[in-house]
Design a protein around this nucleic acid. Structure first.
Lengths: 194, 194
DNA sequence: ATGAAAACAGACTGTATGGTCTGTTTTGTG
DNA sequence: CACAAAACAGACCATACAGTCTGTTTTCAT
């Protein structure tokens, strides 16, 4: 609808800006995400930046969507390649990355920012839908209700571990925690003890 | 060491400032925590504010310690009153509160702020220690390693649910998730289905 | 009571920020 | 090749911010 008359050069700079925004967010946090830093990192002028993103929040949201799309792609690819058995490991690896934790900064900030909240919701829902099927394969036969508990708990666990990882780094413990969750639902993890 | 020669009036205003800081953080988020707002909410001048907290981060950290202490007190009281059986419910209730989620904003922001990280670590460790004993009572006999997995997983789960609660509100699902975690370790929850 | 130190008051400053605005260049189209 | 619209350039601005500084008042030990 809006990308209809978008030119190739524009797409390239847009990409540069988004990549730079992610880079800044990862390096300086959400609080340190400023237009100045983004335009410098992207090698782009203020005019170009504001032309593509008319407000800071718009840029922030676009940046999160950007990484979310990349992560969704990674996950999908991993499932296609290795099957659902390795899904958990991939999810754990992805959610441990600074980009994901940076995204969580936006997530919690959305508590007091309705527009941000509205912008973030679709991505979160989509991830849930994307995981439903491979998780079902992983865990065998489960009624819908139990599956929802399993999936939601898994994602919550991953989020909580990602937050926890900021203050301490204990990957082996995290793997044990995940294995326990899977075990509770009769699924085997491929997570070897670290 | 520093509270030695502190006068009673000073303690009162310090309390006002901290309460106001929490109020502002809850209402406007970490990004919206400004000295202007705090001094207005506290009914205190800039001079008083800076006299007690010489930097913004110092105030933020003190505010988080302030709520952490209050929460620790609540948890301890709940355990003393109702026993470890209701511990989970209390923890869930506490971590669902806006004050806790606001604290998580600081937590994730600490990723790119070493001083903040250093300031937050003690509180997190202390909570873990505080919960070890009642959780052990709750779950029966468990070797140290399994207990650590149980406790860390529980806290991670609660954190993740708290973050998730920003975008959606499904308390019943959350309770089911927690019940599943407890069940995996042979503990019974008192959580009735909502 | 008194004097020194702590507590508070409030004006002030330098700076960084998001956003705007006017122009210039590049692109696609007829 | 013309020409309109999109893309970009970069100076500019109002504002809000954290932190400082100089005074005044309150507290408390003596």
């Amino acid at each position: 609808m809006e990308a209809a008359r978008r030119q190739s050069r524009a797409l390239r700079t847009r990409e540069q800006i988004l990549a730079a925004a992610v880079e800044v967010m990862v390096g300086h946090g959400y609080a340190g995400l400023t237009m100045q830093r983004v335009q410098t990192a992207a090698g782009v002028t203020r005019g170009a930046l504001t032309h593509h993103f008319s407000s800071m929040r718009e840029l922030a949201v676009a940046a999160v969507d950007y990484v979310a799309a990349a992560q969704a792609g990674e996950i999908e690819a991993a499932v296609a390649d290795a099957g659902p058995a390795e899904l958990i490991e991939v999810l754990h690896e992805v959610t441990r990355r600074p980009t994901y934790v940076a995204g969580l900064e936006l997530w919690v900030a959305a508590r007091t920012d309705p527009e941000l909240r509205a912008a973030l919701r679709p991505g979160a829902r989509q991830l849930g839908r994307q995981l439903r099927e491979p998780l079902l394969l992983l865990v065998g036969d489960l009624d819908d209700e139990r599956l929802e508990v399993f999936a939601d708990g898994l994602l919550s666990l991953l989020r909580g571990l990602a937050v926890g990882g900021v203050l301490r780094d204990r990957p082996a413990l995290e793997k044990a925690v995940l294995a326990a969750w899977l075990g509770a639902f009769g699924a085997q993890a491929t997570t070897g003890a670290g």
